[in-house]
Structures are given as structure tokens and as C-alpha cells.
Design a protein around this nucleic acid. Structure first.
Lengths: 403, 403
DNA sequence: CTGAAAGCGCTTACAG
DNA sequence: CTGAAAGCGCTTACAG
């Protein structure tokens, strides 16, 4: 019989029930179900030489001897399985899942029942490949141990999560090299967009991104380049504002303490320097280290500052972790804050409002940055035209007891 | 001309160069490249009725009038483009990328050159679909604002990153419902495995996970169920140890302060209670709230505790954030630590070693938990048989100034 | 509203 | 070592 020679399974057996008894000793192993055209049992003429399950008497075009078809059993419940059970075509299952309103209620109900009964889980890979939309967004932050970026992540999640997006979260560790690597890697996932911290991609990666037509929104920095999307605030103005505040409070010998030394930290320093210069003061008191920032480091840097300039009467720490460490060290040494020395931080982390004394700092809208950057990206992805390509979310000077 | 009727592109135009001039006004829009069999230009007979680029005179089997073929131009550089340029088959490109040793050096070099010249980026979706291995691992943590889990993430990253895995990081917000939702969503990505915090999946999700044959490794808790993978330590023993230490130091009226009240917190409380009971003390001093934990909350809970029990001489806070807040509040009120009241925490966060006084706490190997859980998963994914299904990483009691 | 065909970009499983 | 065929599980783009 020609049909058996072709190795096609009997239509009634599509798809094969793994629990049903199989014919174990036939030479031709192709007793499994071809997955294409499963619902109707049709196969492409010439590709496998099978008949058509709808009209078994149809002439068979090619009947030349051929090798057994290969099988790749995945065990996964597919849209075809659901279709078979719901007695509709795979396309209708696809529609019932994506745009239920386009499907008649009866069909929809049957599909839903089949989905539940079979425990159907859609394949993200297949969807992405077929639709060329991944619903994935790559997010790059310089650190996760810094609460600042975790809150930004929350803002992103709250905006893009409800819209059905998933995230590839990458920690660049403040390294441009790692950032480039992550962008390359994430590009293989065909993300619909990127949300990145800072603006310092290499030329190569910039070209790759535009070649892949993946929109990129930059966070924390405000881009000067037209056509580049960015949401942030002026780090320099913030540094300027808090330094000015120290001067207004009467401090005459303020120092700058910083770690990590990423571009944003350096911009804060530029603000510090400008404030001193404009007020006619020296700006020689700076203790910097490229080490990653943490509380203990704040203690150490305070000691260095005091050894170098015993007359230093105020320090501006580039972030609150450092400020807290400095405060702890003052407590340890019996140095009164702010009477002997004032301490200012940056970011307004949760503990800064509660320490004794509480810490003067710049409150940054980091949740807002994430949310708005995500919103900007969402508009771009939806084909809308955002009003502004550059959103300044500002900052607030929060005066507390430490100054 | 039959060939034009079929709508097949001229072989020489495969693939179409987007910069080349196109014929703009032909009725048949199919001038784009069919992507299948591109390297050889062969098309399935009967499926589209085209000729064979290798032998143009071959007879065409079907020549019935048909609709123009559909195009789905993605613009993406594919393995076929690389193959064409490197003058090899797509399969050889695939091998040159995945297992270079199986390809002759000359071919490999040409492939590498073509990849670089074209800026080829592999498609993760296509790879996943074809290989049914996603190289993605789902990671579920209850919080990202808690530094504890961020360090666990770092351990996971350091173990699985070099092995070529990507992560879907989900924040359950301490909610079992959210955890279930995340697991469902992530399942569509066909992850090779899951790393989850705690052991409290619902029965439904447990079945779905085993149906999908995705291995799950539990972190922080130690599973009592045979066959379940877990890496953690006994939260109860840790709570017991630190409470015992307070008693040994001579404190006679210790209280327990906790927030969030997740299962692990409650296990710490069980340890606290057991220690008091075994030593013959009352264990009635507990201030609990389901609010999320933060420094400010620690201040508030300390106040509540002192109002309720002015004779309380030591508190065990379920985590260091709470302990730090309590310490700040004591400083504010002039309560001496540890002379008037002792404060103990849990986790040993960075600031606990630096505060004044420094805080006695349980040091937890959270990086280790992530790393070892990842390692366990890696073994399972590699088909190896791990020695133990349950890894106890232990904990350390770190004595400091606050007790 | 519903469905058949083709294709998304790779890899598996063979064959040579 | 290399390649042609088939298939992974969906969606797009048509047609009816």
C-alpha cells in the first residue's frame, strides 16, 4: 500500500497519544505526528508523498522511495493540540488567545476549555520568531546593590509590566565594557527596546543598535544630542545646589568626598567646584577613590579628609552611603555633627531621614525616572510621537539636621 | 514566462540588497527573497511552483495560476546571509558559531569575516525554538530592595553567567500569588530551570512545572520533601542561636521585633521562642507587623516595644534594617545601647559593621546560597547527579558592640 | 468569523 | 568535514 510506504501516520492517530500502544518493531520509525497542517492532516505534495486525509483516493504525485522522516518529539502541548481538542483550526486558537473578540463565543469557549484541560503554555520563542515582536525590553543599570537603581527598576516594572513586557535586567557594574557586552548579548533576544543608564555607548554598539532598529532611552543623564531619548536631571545643577546651600549656611571650608567616580559623580563634582568658584572659595578639598561605594568606605574617606584638612567644616558626599559612613565615624570619634562638621549626601536613601542626626541630601526622583523612561519607550513602541525627547524630572534639596 | 508567473525571484537576486534599485511598478510584488533554502535556491515542488536555480530547465510540476507569494521582510541579517557571503551552507555557519572545531579553519575564517562584515546577530528565539533549549533561567526573589537578595543574584550570575545563561528576574514582593503569576509567565519562555526563594508553590503550579520538566531549586529554605532541590540554612536554628546568645550575655527580658512576616521570619521567631522556653523564660514580648521592612519602621517598632514593656532589656530584630532603625531611635532618645537595651539584628548588612555601636547579628551566606543553588541547577541541567539534593550552607553568629 | 499556506531563523538528525 | 531536508510553534497576510 502506497500510503504505508510513504511512512505517513494514519490520520486518526494525529497527534499520537504517547500513552497509546505503539508498533514497536517496524523498521520505519516514523509513527509520530508531523506537526504541520495537523488539524487537517494535509501534507505538502512531494515533500513526503502522503495522501490527503480528507479524500483518501486522491492520486499521489510522487511515490519514489525515500528515507524515513525525522522526528523531534518535544512533548510540549502546542496550539495544534488545543485546536484538535477544540475542533477549530490553529489560527482560531491563536486568535482566541490574542484577540478574543474576533472569535465567536462558542469557539472561544471551546478553546479556553481545551487550553485549561491540556495545560497549554504558549511558546514565547515561536511568537517572537513569527511576529518579530519579542515583548522584551532590555534594562541596563550600573548596580543593583545601590537602592537607587532598584527603585528605578520598580518604576519601569510598574509602567511596562501591565503592558505585557518582560525584562532582561543587566548589571553593568559601572563598566562601559560590560555594558557593551550586555547590549550585544541582549540583542540576540531581539528586544523591542532598551532602557540604559547613562549615555556612553561606543560607536560600534550605537551602530548595531540602530541597525537592529531598537529604540534606546537613556536614564539619569540628559542627552545633548538631538534625536536621542533621555529622562533624567542635571547632576551638575544638583551638586551646585547642595554646595551653595552649605555656603549659605555659613560653612567656609567644604570638601567633596566621592567613590566609584562614574560620569554622574564627576558631574556632581563639577557642580561643587562651580559653586565654590562662583562664591570665590578654593575648591581644593576633594577626596576621591574609584572603589565601589559603601558605608564603611564613607568612614575611611572622612578620616582621610580630616587628616588632610583639619579645618574642613563641611563635607558633600557624592551619595548617602558615604554620608552615613562619615556620620558613623564622627559618632565614633566624638565629632559633633553638624556643630564640628556638617555632612551632606546625595539621593536620599531610606535611612537618611532616620539617622541621628538626619542627613541633608538631594532627593532624586529615581522611581519617576524609571517610570517616565518606560513611558517614553512605550510611546515609541506604540508608534506615537512623544512630545519631548528629553525629559528633565528635576531634583529636590532636602534640608535636615546634619548641616 | 512560467517563472515570472510563479512569482519567484531571480536567483541572482537572492538575497535582495535593500540598497539596490528595485522594480517599483510591477503588479506582482514578490521581488523579495524567499528565505528557505536560500543558499541553494531550491524550493519545494508544488508549494510555490518555482523552478530550481541550480538547473533552470527542470520541468515545473504545477503551473496553475496562483496568488503572489507573501513576504515578511524582517531586515534582519540571518545565518543564510552569512552563508552566502562565506560561500558555505547555513549548517556550516551554524557549526562555525557553536562548535568551531568541527569546521575546517578556512571555512571558519570566512564565516567569521562574514559575521563581522554583516553585523550578524544570532536569533535567540530561533535557537530556542529549534533546539528546545533556551539557556534562560528564571529567578524569583521576594524583594530587590533587600540587599540580601541582590547578593544572592550576584552569586547566581557569577555561577550561571559564565556558562552562558541569561536570567529572567522576578520580584514576587513576598506574595505567593505574584510568585505563581511569575512562574506562569516565565514558563512561556521555556526556561531551562528555575531558582526560587522559599518553598511554597501551589499544587497547580507544581504540576505545571513538572509537566514542563523544568527543574526547580529552592533557596533559603531547606526542603523536607525528598527529591526537592534546596540550598539554604535553618532559619529557626539561627533565631535560636542569637536568642540564646542574648540570654548568655545576661539579658533577662528579650523581645522579638519583626516586619513582613514571611515564612522565614516566622521560623526565626520559632527559634526565638524555643530558646526562651528551653531557658525557662516567658516569650510574650513580640511586636509584629506585616508592613514591609525598612529603617524607619525599626524606629517605630522600638517605640512600641518600650511602651508595652519598659523593662525590655534586649531586642532581636528579624533583620538589620529594623535593628538600625531601632538604634537610631535609641540615639534620638538618649537610650544607651547596649547598656540600657541591647539590639540584635539578622543578615549582617554592610552598615551593621560600621554603625556606632556596631550591631550583633546573624551573618548569612547569601552570595553562597545563590552560587550553590546555581551550581546545583547547572549540574542537573548538565545531566549530572548532584551528591545532595539539600545543601545546608549554615550561618554565623557575629558578636558586636550592640549586645 | 474562519482557515490554508507560507514563513520567521535557527538546529536536529541524517547521509555522504 | 559538509550539506539538504525537515521541523521547532507560532503569526502574518491572504482569501473566502
Amino acid at each position: 500500500m502506497k500510503k504505508n510506504l510513504t511512512g505517513a501516520a494514519k490520520p486518526a492517530e494525529w497527534p499520537v497519544n504517547p500513552n497509546a500502544p505503539t508498533t514497536p518493531t517496524v523498521a520505519n520509525p516514523d509513527t509520530s505526528a508531523p506537526r504541520h497542517g495537523m488539524a487537517t492532516g494535509r501534507r505538502i505534495i512531494g515533500s513526503g508523498g502522503s495522501g490527503d486525509s480528507g479524500s483518501l483516493d486522491e492520486p499521489i504525485v510522487t511515490a519514489s522511495p525515500r528515507k524515513p522522516a525525522r522526528r523531534r518529539p518535544s512533548g510540549r502541548v502546542t496550539i495544534a493540540d488545543v485546536a484538535l481538542r477544540a475542533k477549530v483550526s490553529p489560527m482560531t486558537v491563536s486568535r482566541a488567545l490574542k484577540s478574543p473578540s474576533q472569535v465567536l463565543p462558542e469557539a472561544r469557549t471551546r478553546v479556553e476549555a481545551a487550553v485549561a484541560a491540556l495545560g497549554y503554555v504558549p511558546s514565547h520563542a515561536a511568537r517572537t520568531l513569527a511576529s518579530s515582536r519579542s515583548r522584551v525590553v532590555g534594562v541596563l543599570v550600573p548596580s543593583l546593590s545601590n537602592a537607587v537603581f532598584v527603585e528605578t527598576l520598580a518604576g519601569i516594572q510598574d509602567c511596562l509590566g501591565p503592558a505585557g513586557y518582560q525584562f532582561l535586567i543587566g548589571n553593568t557594574n559601572y563598566s562601559p565594557v560590560t555594558q557593551t557586552e550586555l547590549l550585544s548579548t541582549y540583542l540576540t533576544h531581539a528586544p523591542d527596546g532598551f532602557l540604559v543608564t547613562g549615555i556612553d555607548e561606543s560607536e560600534t554598539i550605537r551602530q548595531r543598535l540602530s541597525a537592529a532598529r531598537v529604540p534606546v532611552v537613556h536614564m539619569y543623564d540628559l542627552s545633548q544630542t538631538p534625536g536621542e531619548w533621555s529622562v533624567g536631571f542635571s547632576q551638575q545643577m544638583a551638586g551646585f545646589a547642595i554646595t551653595n546651600y552649605l555656603l549659605e549656611r555659613g560653612y567656609r571650608r567644604p570638601g567633596f568626598v566621592a567613590a566609584q567616580l562614574d560620569p554622574r559623580t564627576m558631574q556632581r563634582r563639577a557642580g561643587f567646584r562651580r559653586a565654590l568658584r562662583e562664591a570665590g572659595f578654593d575648591c581644593d578639598l576633594e577626596v576621591l577613590t574609584s572603589e565601589p561605594s559603601n558605608v564603611g568606605l564613607g568612614s575611611k574617606l572622612l578620616i582621610q579628609m580630616l587628616e588632610r584638612a583639619p579645618d574642613c567644616d563641611a563635607i558633600f558626599c557624592c551619595n548617602d552611603d558615604l554620608a552615613l559612613g562619615a556620620l558613623f565615624e564622627c559618632q565614633r570619634r566624638g565629632i559633633r555633627v553638624p556643630d564640628d562638621i556638617a555632612i551632606a549626601g546625595f539621593n536620599d536613601l531610606p535611612s537618611s531621614a532616620w539617622s541621628t542626626p538626619s542627613i541633608t541630601t538631594i532627593t532624586t526622583p529615581r522611581y519617576e525616572i524609571g517610570f517616565q523612561a518606560a513611558q517614553l519607550l512605550l510611546q515609541i513602541l506604540n508608534g506615537e510621537t512623544p512630545k519631548k525627547s528629553r525629559i528633565d524630572v528635576g531634583f529636590t534639596l532636602t534640608r535636615r539636621e546634619s548641616t
